[in-house]
Write a protein that binds this DNA or RNA. Structure first.
Lengths: 338, 338
DNA sequence: TTGAAAGCGCTACCAT
DNA sequence: ATGGTAGCGCTTTCAA
């Protein structure tokens, strides 16, 4: 900037204003400045700019697992709004660990990100992290998981609703011994479990507690948990899985045991990850519209950043959608034949 | 920092040094400073620090598609080295578009990232981007794709080798009419095609040019391209696909056409994405060790950043590995029966 | 319309 | 061992 000013024999100020299209600069001067700037390949230094403007145009995105397509899609959705608005996204992987998550957020804040999108790994009831965020008046939006301890902006589906839709569907497909591969002890895991329980109750169906098997959140865990379920007698005839990766693992276990999906055991997951249509057996699932979650969260965050003042916590609830594919579709012949 | 200095009645300098464990500060003073800093919840301002140190501790990662698990895994590998070293990763999605990529890199540089890891979407022969990077002496490492225009550090597999291994395998499995779903016109697409061609030639096998079908890089494209291949006569009995998503799409097309995989058409992909074992037909593939690519690239980049001086372009070649699963395994009965 | 002064929060350098 | 001065590259404020 100095170079430009010297070469053009104007002040640094003039250059600064011209580059930012500030109003009170003559058209002629601005043109000269812009032209020379281009020629010299001038790039504004964002670090310096940030120091005075207190804006970094960086947004942190903390997710539990980048390898899970669900979150990759959320990231993509968020980027589609954030990048055009001039923001960069710093992605951090908490590996589903609350502690790691806290450290990462601290690091992000030390770098003065303008805002945070957070699929939190915090357990229900935890408040420390959220209190800190409030105290420091950080702009942040929770997605996918809403811990009970948080009074914050949120974008996501209602997990009980997901559990209900999935279980309801299995019942309609004729399943009567419906098991659940339960996710971790976070809002999503708990909520889906509750929806499952409640729906069974409403239909007067019993499911022994053994039919609920903890499975974490990835396919390997789904595979192992399903193997355990298959050792029970009577074997379940339907399984609602915490998410699609778990369901994919479960299907593998069922097929390896020599049973058929969906004739012997119907399977449904949640998340509608991109490849679920390509699986061993195309997977029925509850679509949570991950792209839209990312987009809405980004939109809300941008609003928060612009508005400067704290808004009342807003909840944007995305309506989940049942996607029926082969894994839960007991066609007439299959049912009657059994 | 000022507050701490005032409260402790020392200079700002002393505080600054104490906080950074600078050598010439008395143990007592340091302790007092650190203690008060903790109590006040002091967080160093990285922006200011960056302005003077010329280090942002940020690294840019530009990839063509975050949704492709291959790159998600690369990102994870890179993060596993970079984060412990105190670096944050800014991920940008070029959507396989060279122009977008250039803009994103420019934006990253304007923000003074300390380094760049780049799975470039540039076509072979392009030099402008790389010239710019050289001129500005940016620390950067190319991964997965090495455009001919670039004289740069690189981590990845040899694509011709991938094409050879895959084609070789199909031949050993008894395929004689081997088709190829060809990727985009980037080094990976071209290299894999060459390996395929060369291997056919070496074995004296002919494949008409119609057997090479452009398929881009995602499953939808693989699905459509495979449908076209299936209309040819004679129908190919083996297909080497540019990558795993394309292969997944191809398998879907084959099955929908009423043919069997691998008995009628054997399929092999490349990349060994995480879910390829869970697909409709478990997918044979060439493992490129994406985690390791990410790790090595990060390691190399850290070296570059530390060393300060330009090093001679280094090439880290990862040896690909053949993974045989059901999609290409023509078991004895199947072969003899045909 | 232009520019001089001050300062963002921190650190390098040199003096004490 | 401690601190003063200067400056990183830019913007805000206010005076000319």
């Amino acid at each position: 900037m100095k170079d430009i000013a010297r070469a053009l024999d104007v002040s640094v100020m003039t250059v600064s204003k011209a580059l930012r299209n500030h109003s009170d600069i003559s058209e002629a001067t601005r043109r000269r400045v812009l032209q020379l700037a281009r020629k010299l390949g001038y790039q504004p230094n964002w670090v310096a700019r940030s120091l005075v403007s207190r804006r970094t145009y960086m947004v942190g995105l903390v997710i539990p697992d980048l390898m899970h397509s669900f979150f990759a899609e959320v990231a993509k959705g968020a980027a589609s709004l954030l990048e055009p608005a001039g923001y960069h996204i710093v992605i951090l992987n908490s590996e589903e660990d609350p502690q790691t998550e806290e450290c990462q957020i601290a690091a992000l804040l030390a770098r003065n990100v303008d805002g945070l999108i957070l699929a939190s790994a915090q357990r229900n009831g935890t408040t420390r992290l959220f209190r800190t965020l409030e105290e420091r008046t950080v702009n942040y939006v929770l997605i996918d998981r809403l811990p009970t301890g948080a009074r914050a902006h949120y974008v996501g589906c209602e997990d009980e609703r997901i559990g209900e839709m999935a279980t309801e569907h299995l019942i309609r497909q004729g399943c009567r011994r419906i098991a659940h591969l339960r996710g971790p002890d976070i809002p999503t895991g708990i909520g889906r479990y509750r929806g499952y329980r409640r729906t069974l109750a409403r239909h007067g169906l019993k499911a022994p507690e053994r039919y609920v098997m903890p499975a974490r959140h990835h396919d390997e865990a789904g595979y192992e948990a399903m193997q355990k379920l298959l050792r029970l007698r009577p074997v379940p005839d339907g399984v609602f899985c915490y998410n699609d990766p778990v369901a994919a693992g479960a299907i593998r276990a069922i097929l390896e045991a020599g049973l058929r999906v969906p004739e012997d055991v119907a399977v449904i997951g949640s998340g509608n990850v991109h490849y679920s249509d390509l699986l061993r057996v195309p997977l029925s699932t509850i679509d949570q519209n991950s792209l839209e979650i990312g987009r809405r969260a980004a939109g809300l965050l941008l609003e928060l950043i612009e508005s400067k003042r704290a808004l009342n916590p807003r909840r944007i609830i995305i309506e989940p959608r049942l996607i029926v594919r082969q894994s839960s579709l007991r066609v007439r012949e299959a049912v009657s034949r059994g």
